[in-house]
Structure formats: structure tokens, C-alpha cells
């Protein structure tokens, strides 16, 4: 039984990653957060010319090395071993955040605990739990040119993650532009949440049931095109 749920959730994560991979334009600089976003790299075409930035001081993350080539002096912000991608460069943490805070990151893809209907993000702390880590989340939220949220449509306890108002601590006043779940794609324009795509295995009724936030449905509502 556990296995079935596990596979289902892995498939959901892969679907989200594949859909976001389609969204990343050639020649852009992208920061991928921990969790589902890190999977996206596996679904970028080898010639995608998407340059992945890592906040510990690297532009140009390459594929995961085979075990015999692991060098723990070369890691991602998730502290996993990586390699250099095409045209990679190394810089200090302060230069890395010049890139992030100076608005030189085209797209930041991040996970979240909740997103509000205006696109406000909660992705660093759970109420009632210890608040002992923030990392670069708030820097990315405040300063990336575009933010895509990669989340499962509902939490493990089936509660909606796309909500009217955040009940978890906010990561900043800056709002996301896009939300991709295993069931739907939303965009946020002028503070308005809009459903643009539905996966082939869901219905509008189900989305309405599983989404607490108020949203409008696009006149050009499409099926999410991922295999």
C-alpha cells in the first residue's frame, strides 16, 4: 500500500518537473530550489542552454557525477555532489547573492508549504516548529525576475496548499508568477490567480475541491502537455 502511494507521489513529482522544464527558455539563468525543483535538471534537453545557478557560488551546474568522480568540493546548495556544466564559473557567496539580489536570475523555481491566491509564498517555516533555517529562500523570493512554485496540489494530510491567505510564515512580500502542481498550472497576473492548464487525469470540479484559493478559469484552458 505504502509502495503504491510512494510511486504515485514520485510520478506526481516527475510530472511537475517535466512541465516546468518546458517553461525554461533557452539562454536563461535559473535557480532550482530543494525538493521537486532539483528534479527539473533531469528533464532539460541536453542542448537546452538553460544555465543553472547554485547559491553557494556556481553558475553552470552539470549532471551528477558517477561515484568515482565525486568531489565534495563541488556541491550544489542542497549539498549534493555535482559537476561543471558548459561554461561554468565559480564565485564567492557574496558574488552569488549579487547575482540573486541584483535581479540577474531569470527564473527561480522553488517548493512551498503554501502559496496564497495572490502568489505570496510560505516556504521556510512551520508554525509551532523551531525556526532555525532560512538559507537563501528569502533572497530568491525577494529578487528573482520570475518565480515558479513547484508543489504537490495538496499536503500529505490532503489539506490544500494553494490557499486564500497564508497561515504559515511568509517568505516575503514579493509574489510568485506561476504555480505548477501534478494536477494543474496556475498563473498569477495583477494579483489574480488563473487556472490555465489541467492534467488529463483530473477535472475542474476536483481542482475546485482541492484548492482553497479563489481562482478564475482561463478562457483558453488547456490540458497539461506532459507524457
Amino acid at each position: 500500500m505504502l509502495n503504491v502511494t510512494g510511486n504515485k507521489s514520485a510520478a506526481a513529482r516527475i510530472r511537475i518537473a517535466k512541465r516546468i522544464a518546458q517553461e525554461l527558455q533557452e539562454g536563461t539563468v535559473v535557480n532550482l530550489g530543494v525538493g521537486i525543483p532539483t528534479l527539473i535538471q533531469n528533464y532539460l534537453k541536453p542542448d537546452s542552454k538553460v544555465y543553472l545557478q547554485s547559491e553557494n557560488g556556481l553558475l553552470g551546474i552539470g549532471p551528477t557525477p558517477p561515484p568515482e568522480e565525486i568531489d565534495m568540493d563541488l556541491i550544489s546548495a542542497s549539498k549534493h555532489p555535482i559537476t561543471f556544466g558548459e561554461g561554468a564559473s565559480i564565485f564567492s557567496s557574496s558574488d552569488s547573492f549579487v547575482m540573486i539580489r541584483g535581479g540577474h536570475i531569470d527564473v527561480a523555481v522553488m517548493g512551498a508549504l503554501q502559496v496564497s491566491q495572490t502568489g505570496e509564498i510560505a516556504n521556510w517555516a512551520v508554525p509551532g516548529q523551531d525556526i532555525l533555517g532560512v538559507g537563501g529562500a528569502m533572497d530568491l523570493v525577494a529578487n528573482a525576475k520570475k518565480i515558479i512554485i513547484a508543489i504537490s496540489h495538496v499536503a500529505k494530510d490532503q489539506s490544500p496548499k494553494i490557499v486564500k491567505e497564508l497561515t504559515y510564515p511568509t517568505s516575503g512580500i514579493r509574489q510568485a508568477e506561476m504555480i505548477v502542481t501534478e494536477k494543474a498550472v496556475f498563473r498569477i497576473e495583477n494579483g489574480q490567480l488563473r487556472l490555465d492548464e489541467l492534467s488529463s487525469d483530473t477535472t475542474l470540479e476536483e481542482i475546485q475541491k482541492l484548492t482553497e484559493a479563489e481562482f478564475i478559469v482561463s478562457e483558453k484552458l488547456k490540458t497539461m502537455a506532459v507524457d
Partner: peptide, 15 residues
């Protein structure tokens, strides 16, 4: 005791 500072703010504060 712990004082939490966002990573970029920390890097820039040291710079």
C-alpha cells in the same frame, strides 16, 4: 543562542 540571517544578507553583511 541562534541568530538567523538570510544567506544573501549574511554574505553581504560580511562583505
Amino acid at each position: 543562542e541562534i541568530e538567523l540571517i538570510p544567506q544573501g544578507t549574511l554574505a553581504e553583511a560580511i562583505r
